[in-house]
Amino acid sequence: MPRLTFICHDGASHEVQGEVGRSVMNAAIDNLVPGIDADCGGECACATCHVYVDEAWLDKVGTPDEAEDAMLDLNPERAPNSRLSCQIPVTDALDGFRARVPEFQM
């Protein structure tokens, strides 16, 4: 099972196991990683599962589709490595994945 690491705003790092076929957001929520709200339950409709993907992993996770891009665009603190974690499927290739969790979701 791929291992995923979330670095929270306070600097604490949380290593969790991802489940192939589910999303990075699910892995964070299932393991109670703080700072991810996921109000819409993973449907790309709330943008409260925002993470900053570690540069080294950007290629592996691909780019946001149009719907995700529109939702990310609502956030004044969007960065080039911003992603909605519910839109990143966990695969074996993501073993070692790292992302930073913002201070607040909005």
Partner: peptide, 22 residues
Amino acid sequence: DQPQHGPQRRAVSPVVGPRNLA
């Protein structure tokens, strides 16, 4: 609707953004 909606929202949203909220 898009495309007018996005830029206007972005112009005002920092006032309720994370930094200001804190």
